[in-house]
Write a protein that binds this DNA or RNA. Structure first.
Length: 119
DNA sequence: CTTCTTACA
DNA sequence: TGTAAGAA
């Protein structure tokens, strides 16, 4: 399928799709006229990209993670290391957020204002 | 009409 | 990422 159809089927803009290719996470074939040709597998790949992007990962890392999903067993170990490193990173982020939340909870508990009446 | 590339009030 | 411009 051409880029327009992939865009429709994924809800991702044509612009973003071309950007993903530029980043190497998508490698569509080209027609003689230079049109990008995507496969059905690319529809799923784009879904993965969306999830990873939503998780706060950068395109660089996403490219590496997607490479793991491509089933290249020779790179599997290296891929696992990357994924484990990212897992540790987000765990740190989560800890930070939990800490910040408790800080806000304390603040809210000590700044509770008296009930207001309607104006 | 759709896609391509390049570039940026 | 959007959008504009010129070409295919």
């Amino acid at each position: 399928m051409k880029i327009g159809e992939l865009a429709d089927r994924t809800g991702v803009s044509v612009r973003a799709l071309r950007y993903y290719e530029e980043k190497g996470v998508l490698r569509p074939d080209r027609t003689a006229a230079g049109y990008r040709i995507f496969t059905d597998a690319d529809v799923r790949t784009v879904s993965h990209i969306q999830r990873l992007l939503a998780a706060g990962l950068g395109m660089d890392l996403i490219g590496q993670i997607l490479a793991c999903l491509s089933g290249d067993t020779l790179l599997l170990d290296a891929c696992r290391e990357r994924l484990e490193a990212e897992r540790r990173r987000i765990t740190g982020d989560i800890d930070q957020l939990v800490h910040t939340r408790s800080l806000l909870d304390d603040l809210l508990a000590t700044t509770r204002a008296p009930a207001r009446r309607s104006a």
